[in-house]
């Protein structure tokens, strides 16, 4: 096995599953039971008529481990489709975060100014706090959070990554 094959790499995997009770437990149980990483996980129903949900998992592993993860996911009975967005063509990834910053005076003004640069929206405001809503790549959100840390950051809620392939083909 070459050095390259042993290197762990980050992959975003999209999974189409039946929206039934226990299906998320099957996916998560598979990851914990077999010792795979989960860096982020999002899930919501995406097709009401067919009762399908879409799970997006960000994981990391060597090519052999990633291949295993995909094969193991594919053999779960309620799983319809597994797609590795990292290797199967290019894709777009986004995450949404809500960030609460508490402060008055110069810090408060500065946080608003930075929010403007990042195109974050204010979705709640009190006399000494803001809640910002920010959408972007995980790196962008990390950068925003880092800047807010010194300006009174008290709370963060993030969705985890959602992703979709570029071009005309569906999952």
């Amino acid at each position: 096995m070459s050095e390259l094959d042993r290197r762990s790499r980050r992959h975003t995997i999209a999974i189409l599953v039946d929206n039934e009770s226990g299906v998320l437990a099957r996916v998560i149980g598979l990851f914990s039971g077999r010792g795979y990483n989960i860096e982020s996980l999002t899930v919501a129903e995406t097709d009401k008529a067919k009762s399908l949900s879409r799970v997006t998992i960000v994981t990391s592993g060597t090519p052999m481990v990633i291949e295993q993860i995909k094969a193991q996911l594919s053999r779960l009975v309620p799983v319809h489709r597994v797609s590795d967005l990292t290797t199967e063509g290019s894709s777009v990834e986004r995450e949404l975060a809500m960030i609460k910053v508490v402060g008055i005076g110069e810090n408060r003004v500065e946080s608003l100014r930075i929010a403007d640069i990042f195109r974050a929206r204010v979705v709640d405001s009190s006399r000494n706090s803001f809640v910002f809503e920010l959408t972007g790549t995980a790196q962008k959100i990390n950068a925003f959070i880092e800047l807010m840390t010194d300006l009174g950051l008290v709370d963060v809620s993030r969705t985890g990554i959602v992703a979709i392939s570029r071009g005309s083909n569906p999952l």
Binding site: M64, E67, Q68, A71, Q72, S74, R75
Partner: peptide, 8 residues
Amino acid sequence: IDPSSINK
């Protein structure tokens, strides 16, 4: 018959 047995 089981793809997850391959390259495990």
